[in-house]
Design a protein around this nucleic acid. Structure first.
Lengths: 112, 112
DNA sequence: GGCCTACATATAGCGTCTCTACCTATGAGC
DNA sequence: GCTCATAGGTAGAGACGCTATATGTAGGCC
């Protein structure tokens, strides 16, 4: 899959992954790999900056915790993040509807 | 709709719009507005460079024609463009499948 | 003990792509 | 003649994800 295709949809993926649970960055990457069957293999250099962006935007908050002597920054959604996720889902549905309409069923254009 | 969301899918839209017919740039914009019900309103500064990119890539070719004294550069798909369109459609299907899987049915994660 | 790998977070620089904002040119209508 | 709609085009900017790299700990292996 083209990496660029994610552009503009990464936030939605991260928010959705954090929906109803809290994870640290590394775990988010693994979770996305799982649910996508390996199709999504986001590099850390993509995820960590994105999470900080989301935190700056107030969509997630993070807590430091030490597990097994290893520091982890655990993220979870805020109220605003929940709303944002909702909005992202709507936007995604609208987006796919529009693009599907253009790409069509592989059909030519009915010159109505 | 967020404009950036198109990123990486613009080529697919343009190729699909040219599938089975030839249009000039301005007409492509209008065609996309029509099929999307107004949701897609691409600025010329987006479309013209994209078409040139597609032409450089060999996916479309253009002919100058003069209609009513006005010059028009009419684009149409090449064989490679047809193949590219096919590939774009497949990529789109795969892409939506993956993202849909992550965004889920609005469902929480089954803590299995 | 020393070394390497896996885990975990983070930053810098790069390249690409779309958008905004402009510019040019013609024909038609006023 | 002037303005508007049509039509094509370019320049510059900004955003964003990727690649590459750096840091530090825990645990296994030799």
């Amino acid at each position: 899959m083209k990496p660029d295709a994610l552009r503009g949809h990464l936030d939605a993926l991260l928010l959705a992954t954090l929906d109803g649970r809290q994870l640290h960055g590394y775990a988010i990457i693994e979770a996305l790999q799982q649910v996508s069957g390996g199709a999504l293999d986001l590099p850390t250099g993509t995820v960590y900056p994105a999470l900080r962006r989301l935190e700056r935007a107030g969509h997630v908050i993070s807590d430091w915790s030490t597990v097994g002597g290893r520091k982890r920054r655990t993220y979870r959604l805020t109220q605003a993040g929940q709303k944002a996720l909702h909005a992202e889902r709507s936007a995604w549905r609208e987006f796919t509807t529009v693009i599907d309409g253009v790409l069509g069923g592989g059909g030519k254009w009915a010159q109505t």
